[in-house]
Design a protein around this nucleic acid. Sequence first.
DNA 1: AGCGATGTTCGCCG
DNA 2: TCGGCGAACATCGC
Length: 259
Amino acid sequence: MPELPEVETFKRYLDKTSLKQMVTDVKVSDARILSVDHSVLKKSLINKKFESSIRHGKYLFIFLNPEYLVLHFGMTGDLEYYSKKDEEPRFSKVIFYFKNDFNLAYISTRMFGRVSIVNSVEEFVNLKKLGPDAFKMSLEDFAEALNRRTAILKNALLNQSFIAGVGNIYSDEIMFRTKLHPRTKIDGLSETKKQELYENIKYVLKFGIEHKGDLSTYPKSFLIPHRKKDEMCPICNTKIEDFELSGRHGFFCPNCQKE
DNA sequence: AGCGATGTTCGCCG
DNA sequence: TCGGCGAACATCGC
């Protein structure tokens, strides 16, 4: 599932269900998901509360005081809060047991997610060299990220060191909305386009968050429902084309998004 | 039944 | 150093 809007949705779900709850135990059913020793994970969590949460890009940090639990969801992750009377969700990799007899399952179907413990958000962001959060960044942050860069815009949007949170699907939507060809280079962008790009990143992510990251609910006026073969552009009715760039593939309208 | 997938990382090369 | 590319990772669902 997860690009920024999905992770933000997970954050809100976690805040609503699991905050201020005492962790009594942790179960790890596949240790490959951990980027930290199992013993360290346990020690950091047991008898601690989920005090608060922070999302940066596609990462979710949960403050345990003094450390942070970090959740990353890879390509197929989810959270599920459920009563201990209920069955454990399929593909659960880590279960957090709370004192109130509810559990939170960290689900990672294809094992691409990671769970870790870190000392601070800043330390982690620096270590991973994450750029500013794409949803929270100011125009100045964005201008700074663009500064002196020459890369192909789509690659930059996918590069978490540029700005953090945008993935393959939303990058296509952002480029579509800004009417930029997928191979447009950063250094060729006019000031107007840069401004427009900034606004569209915000718009697309906000829309995504409002729709809880559920791509199936997108109206036809977006590119997202047309990201497959033989679809027509919702604006000009030209046939949507697919392309490959650095091993990812995407979709665009060759008429609206001219080179 | 093979292939592709909303992500990250690493090595290679220009 | 930057950046493009491709592969690797794991595994399910179409």
